[in-house]
Design a protein around this nucleic acid. Structure first.
Length: 602
DNA sequence: CGTTAGTGTCATCAG
DNA sequence: CACTGATGACACTAA
């Protein structure tokens, strides 16, 4: 039943369904998870009658590890074609891709092999690890283990968004949760479609590929000679519209009607070509990233370049941080018209959070930004960028912008001070300059002057505690003066602290934004990798299916008749041997193996 | 005239 | 306990 999921309706909707682009797909993911559990429960309900009896008929070749039915119902069991021969045949006729792998243990088989229903003519208990004996150059067992671990990952992780996205399973499809075998399994170029019966195909099979529609005919014609005994039921059972039983034609000839497998997953995954998958993955990205498809495609290009941070450099926090220098340079260049003058800010400590930026500076910055794409954060940041106070001292006209938030000062005064006309400067006597500077003084400076504080606010604020106390001791100051001085110092310190605080806050925000971007990229990249991985996984599974089918189809009993796939299945033992066992027994073992990981998960 | 960004200030807390 | 820095909250200004 594990395989059964792979051919569910999920795939049926694949071509047309667009819910993958639905932002509500997350909800569907939950539904899928729910369905997964339901499907697991369903498994336990599968019939296994006769398993014991059939199990008794099992023979295992002690030398080769191969197993044969000790007693085929109806006669002395002797495989007309040894498994080795079969393998050789298969190797000759169905060369595997570079990634051909086979189950290394029973569990793997039970997972990979379609159990239950099996089309009479099509040996669909596929995925048997028959090839171990061929001594493939690969460590097949190891590779299979890897494959299975991948499958587990897939089962655990992919069942969420990706499963939905990739296979577009209807929420109600209980089979959809397990698409690992062949949802959307692309038709493998290396596999003969005529011989490889690709699992149960739903009627929607035809939706995707006219080619596949012809599959039943081709398959039956090919397999009929191999399965003469089943030939009759084959044609009657598998119409072109019902390929569901191809893979799991459980007890086809018998009475079982496979109702236990209401909907067989669509092996048509194969019809979903890579381009489609790419598109899906991109769309997935687009959805998750909040990008539009165009942006998503751009994103993918970025991935290809693996550039990590490929955003505009002006957007990069690192560049922003390093933009201090550029900011400074731009400000210095923009200050060409400014005269030099000392101000309170000139003595600010370097570290002293003097993030004042001039309007002209901002203008220059914005011009530059316009060339590379304006970024609000960038501008903000630059305005807040740490700056050498000494540079501010070179911008007397801008001084007030940073320091003179003198609420008691008339705006007109500030305006006039902002950009005094050159003519005014020329005419400007020292009086006017003094007046101008006076207007630039802060409230505390005014207060200090009013209180006749004998030293500058700059000293009050920036002197170390010891020097500050020493300075106070040098003068005979009234209590009011001392109080004002302390207030000035406190406010001055706090002002710088506030500026530092705001800069930190801004930095933090920018860093967080960068982190979000990085994480989004990582997420998109991982998602893309997952899609690619699933694609290759499906291909591998299909290869295994085809091999299994090939081998099983060539097995003959002592009478030269093929084994019924509804009654027998190939099983891969842990020691690498291949067993031909009764179907019911295989199903039992499959269920047993499947429960383990699930229990583990719980 | 309302909004927004930038800034200064105060209150408060933590070290 | 005083001092200092950090930070939220508020007010003010300019755009």
């Amino acid at each position: 039943m594990w395989l059964a999921y792979c051919f569910g309706q999920k795939d049926i909707d694949l071509g047309a369904g667009r819910e993958i682009f639905d932002y509500s797909h997350r909800q569907k993911e939950q539904d899928v998870d729910k369905e997964l559990q339901d499907g697991a429960e369903q498994e336990d309900t599968w019939p296994s009658e006769g398993a014991e009896a059939l199990a008794r008929n099992l023979l295992v070749d002690g030398e080769t590890g191969e197993s044969f039915p000790a007693q085929v119902p109806g006669g002395e069991d002797q495989t007309a074609l040894s498994l080795k021969e079969c393998l050789r045949l298969v190797e000759a006729t169905c060369p595997f891709g570079e990634n051909a792998e086979f189950p290394a243990d029973i569990s793997s088989i039970t997972e990979a092999v379609p159990s239950e229903s099996e089309p009479p003519g099509l040996q669909n208990n596929l995925l048997s690890p028959l090839l171990t004996e061929t001594e493939s150059p690969f460590d097949l067992e190891q590779q299979w283990q890897d494959l299975m671990s991948i499958m587990e990952m897939q089962a655990m992780e992919v069942n969420t968004s990706t499963s939905e996205i990739l296979y577009n399973a209807p929420p109600g499809d209980p089979l959809s949760t397990n698409y690992s075998l062949a949802p959307n399994t692309p038709i493998n170029q290396n596999v003969s479609l005529h011989q490889a019966s690709l699992g149960g195909c739903s009627q929607d099979f035809s939706l995707f590929s006219p080619e596949v529609e012809s599959l039943p005919v081709a398959s039956s014609s090919t397999l009929l000679p191999l399965v003469p005994s089943n030939s009759t039921s084959l044609n009657s059972t598998f119409g072109s519209t019902n390929l569901a039983g191809l893979f799991f034609p459980a007890q086809l000839n018998s009475t079982a009607n496979d109702t236990a497998v209401p909907e067989l997953p669509d092996p048509l995954g194969g019809l979903l070509d890579e381009a489609m998958l790419d598109e899906i993955s991109l769309m997935d990205l687009a959805i998750e990233e909040g990008f539009n498809p165009v942006q998503a495609s751009q994103l993918e290009e970025e991935f290809d370049s693996d550039s990590g941070l490929s955003l505009d450099s002006s957007h990069s926090p690192s560049s922003l941080s390093s933009s201090e220098g550029s900011s400074s340079s731009s400000s210095s260049s923009s200050s060409s018209s400014s005269s030099t003058s000392s101000s309170a800010s000139s003595s600010f400590s370097e570290e002293g959070a003097v993030g004042y930026s001039s309007d002209s500076e901002t203008l220059d910055l914005e011009e530059a930004e316009g060339a590379v794409g304006y970024q609000p954060e960038y501008s903000k940041f630059c305005r807040m960028s740490y700056q050498d106070p000494s540079q501010l001292s070179c911008l007397p006209y801008l001084e007030h912008v940073g320091h003179n938030h003198t609420y008691n000062m008339a705006p007109s005064a500030l305006d006039s001070a902002d950009l005094p006309p050159p003519s005014a400067l020329k005419k400007g006597s020292k009086e006017k300059q003094a007046d101008f500077l006076d207007k630039q003084m802060s409230r505390d400076e005014h207060r200090a002057r009013a209180m006749k504080i004998p030293f500058t606010n700059d000293k009050i604020i920036n002197l170390p505690v010891e020097e500050f106390n020493e300075l106070l001791s040098k003068y005979q100051l009234s209590e009011a003066q001392l109080s004002l001085i302390r207030d000035i110092r406190r406010r001055g310190k706090n002002k710088m602290a506030a500026q530092n605080c705001r800069k930190r806050k801004l930095d933090t925000i920018l860093n967080l934004e960068r982190d979000v971007e990085d994480l989004q990229r990582d997420k998109a990249r991982l998602l893309r990798e997952k899609v690619e991985f699933l694609r290759s996984l499906r291909q591998m599974k299909q290869k295994v299916q085809s091999l299994y089918q090939e081998v099983f189809g060539r097995l003959r009993d002592e009478n030269g008749r093929p084994y019924s796939p509804s009654q027998y299945a190939l099983q891969y033992a842990g020691d690498g041997s291949v067993l031909l066992i009764p179907r019911t027994l295989a199903d039992q073992q499959a269920r047993r193996q499947e429960r383990k990981p699930k229990d583990r998960r719980k």
